[in-house]
Design a protein around this nucleic acid. Structure first.
Lengths: 242, 242
DNA sequence: AGAGCGCTTTCTGTATACAAAGCCATGTCG
DNA sequence: CGACATGGCTTTGTATACAGAAAGCGCTCT
């Protein structure tokens, strides 16, 4: 994960895989999630094309898909940029996720097979261990895996897909607005409690649990007054891609 | 609306507007909504390009966006086709929309300005009039306008955008699975009742109202056993675009 | 007659060329 | 000194050419 894109491209081509728009989408999305590409970063098509060894056609397709996923912004005749959701949008994204993920876990309660419950349990343990040893990237990865698993297992696939999208968007804004002094957005009790409710089939309790979890997470962020933060980012954020 | 695409293209170019991907997206989406393009219809890039007088580049971008909107399917090295949601997905789409639109109207209750309430009231009347004179396309148009207005006015813009998407998707499956004998999916009392609750600020009543409305709508559809219906459509639906 | 195989046609995937729009810095005029 | 015009430079928009994959068609062999 610490390697450069060029190295990953070389590895991919050696492995026989051809570089497609999907590859670029994944790489850019991960880079945004891990804040290697801060909001406002310019993403010129030729530069990306050179990095990934493809022409602008493929890059353009990738950028269009990233724009549909709300990861980048595309304005006509202007360079694509990493999106910087406003504080207002951040609150609304959390609100939407509370609604959707709450419904998903309510539907899911009592319907998960034991193997799936065990899988979540394992991830919860991994997350706790990663937090204990101070490995924040690993902790985030496991936390995301838990929520993605819930989204994938949603009995309602449409809601599941919407939840997948919302998980991505909340992750981006968490990275963006994480309070400076805070090393980690970790709430030790929430995931184990959710797991218990899911196992016992307590749908409404699970809904409340995830609702409060996401509310607590939102309150850990620095969504205070100064709107200037992202405005300046958008206007002055001229950092180059590499 | 009954003119051909070529005529609309000519009108657009005469008006000075250039044909862009957005134009194509709108036209194809409307054609799908009105079932002029039935599910499974092949959408070859060159054919669309000829029709709209642009090259494949623009068409490809439009198709990518339509795929992101769940209007068409795109598989590698295969021609794009108008999507045919399964019965299962239809139920799940309605479920998702009940959740999201319920929350939106709950948030909206008591917050709408009088002018906006009047606008909805006017649309409700138009819808009733169109139904009375048997003009089903006009009735659908006004009904859609009501729901789109709710989505646009949502205090939570993220939820609003999700609702816009779900309105489109439910409209598609309504067109697909409308019971053969039924001339109209119209429930006379529902929209006026919703309007009353919105005006009085009765959020939970509005939520229940829209929930029951959508449930009744879903039950008007022919979602009975034979899954073969869309499978055959997908496999055998080889109708040409024009 | 039916199954399998290979050819041809159609369509998409990708790269590239050219045109147009935007951005930035410089210089000029008020 | 500041505002504005203008030039080049960068970047995107669009069309087109060529290569490769998929689907349809007919042929042959059994």
């Amino acid at each position: 994960m610490s390697s450069t894109w060029q190295e990953e491209v070389a590895a991919e081509t050696r492995a026989g895989g051809r570089i497609s728009d999907r590859f670029i989408v994944d790489k850019v999305r991960n880079a945004v999630l891990t804040q290697r590409l801060p909001p406002g970063t310019r993403l010129p098509e030729v530069a990306l094309g050179d990095i990934f060894g493809v022409s602008r056609s493929v890059v353009r397709k990738a950028l269009t898909r990233l724009a549909a996923d709300h990861v980048v912004t595309q304005h006509p005749n202007q360079v694509a940029r990493v999106r910087a959701p406003s504080i207002e949008e951040t609150r609304e994204t959390f609100g939407a996720r509370r609604l959707v993920e709450g419904e998903v876990v309510a539907l899911l309660a009592g319907r998960l097979a034991d193997t799936q419950l065990d899988a979540i349990d394992t991830l919860v343990e991994y997350e706790a261990e990663a937090h204990a040893r101070g490995d924040e990237p690993a902790r985030i990865e496991h936390s995301l895996a838990i929520h993605h698993l819930l989204a994938d297992q949603s009995p309602n696939r449409v809601l599941g897909a919407m939840l997948t999208d919302l998980i991505l968007r909340t992750s981006i804004v968490i990275a963006l607005y994480k309070r400076a002094g805070l090393s980690s957005c970790y709430l030790a009790e929430d995931h184990p409690a959710l797991l218990v409710h899911l196992g016992r089939g307590e749908g409404e309790a699970a809904r409340r649990c995830i609702h409060d979890h996401l509310l607590a997470l939102e309150n850990l962020l620095d969504l205070s007054a100064r709107e200037t933060r992202i405005d300046l980012m958008e206007i002055l954020g001229q950092k180059e891609v590499s």
